[in-house]
Simulated assay, not measured.
Amino acid sequence: MAIISTKAIVLSAIKYSDSSLIVKCFTEKLGVKTYLIRGVLKNRKGVIKAAYFQPLTQLILEANHKQKSNLHSLKEVHVSHAYTSIHRDIVKQSIVLFLSEILSSSIQEEEENSVLYEYLETALIWLDTHDKIANFHLLFLLNFTKYLGFYPDLFDQETASSFNLFEGSFSNAFTDKNCIVHHNLFLFKTLLGINFDAIENVLFSKQDRQALLQIIIRYFELHLDGFRKPKSLTILETVFS
């Protein structure tokens, strides 16, 4: 058994028995790890609080990691960055719930990926500290593909008349149902190469936003084995409708 101290982002928390939680985290030092936290739902005076394990909360963990086990335990937990708006803004809560499902389904590696961790950490702090966030989840997901290995190939971006979601590249051929063209292509191109500070200048209608989200989710489905469409997708679409 090794005691590890690491930053971590909560991906999911599932109730186990009447009083415990099974929590999956993306840790800075060890990738995805799962923890059994016994009694946390009933012991309100304990040092580890159930409130720490809301979706995408940023923590510092001191954990006992067993070499031959998939389920580990926590000694200490502290919030590393306390959000000021996410947990009291219904739109931001809906975005966070949706993104936590995407991340939980997409990140499988049990090894250090500090570059991805920094991206998630920085993006979530940006969400917490800004107000014009209607397009945040779209840009977040598209930029997330850089760290998963299938960010769009930008060759011929300016002149191409279609983008093949399966191939991940632009072309002038319309080969199958996985090609996007016309207005959907324009929407997709609009997000490429911009940063979060630029999204408040991107004016999408609610129909544009929904169409683009469906395109991006299809892109994930084509490139990630076992990717599951988030259950919270309908909630997100309702919030932005």
Rank of each mutant, 00 (worst) to 15 (best):
M1S: 14
I4P: 03
I4T: 12
S5C: 03
S5E: 15
T6Q: 09
K7T: 00
A8Y: 07
A8M: 09
A8I: 09
I9A: 05
A13F: 01
I14V: 14
Y16D: 04
Y16K: 07
S17Y: 06
S17D: 11
F26M: 08
G31A: 05
K33H: 04
Y35T: 05
V40F: 05
R44F: 08
Y52E: 00
F53R: 09
Q58H: 04
H65E: 14
N70D: 14
L71Y: 06
S73P: 00
V77C: 10
S80M: 06
H81Y: 15
A82M: 14
A82W: 12
I86L: 09
I90W: 11
I90Q: 11
Q93H: 02
I95V: 10
L99A: 12
S106Q: 03
S106A: 15
Q108A: 02
S114K: 15
S114N: 10
V115S: 12
E118G: 02
Y119E: 03
L120G: 04
L120K: 02
E121N: 15
T122F: 01
L127R: 10
A134T: 13
N135H: 14
F136K: 03
H137K: 07
H137F: 13
F140D: 03
L141Q: 14
N143P: 05
F150C: 05
P152N: 13
L154P: 00
F155N: 14
T159A: 10
T159W: 01
T159G: 07
A160T: 10
F163S: 07
F163G: 06
F166S: 15
E167S: 06
S171F: 07
N172H: 12
A173G: 00
K177P: 03
K177G: 00
N178K: 02
C179P: 06
H182Q: 10
H183M: 03
H183I: 01
L187C: 13
F188T: 02
F188C: 02
D197Y: 11
D197H: 13
A198G: 00
N201R: 10
V202A: 05
F204I: 06
Q207W: 00
R209P: 00
Q210A: 13
A211M: 09
I215V: 15
I215E: 10
R218I: 10
Y219S: 04
E221P: 02
E221C: 09
L224S: 04
P230E: 07
S232W: 03
L233D: 04
T234K: 08
T238S: 12
F240P: 00
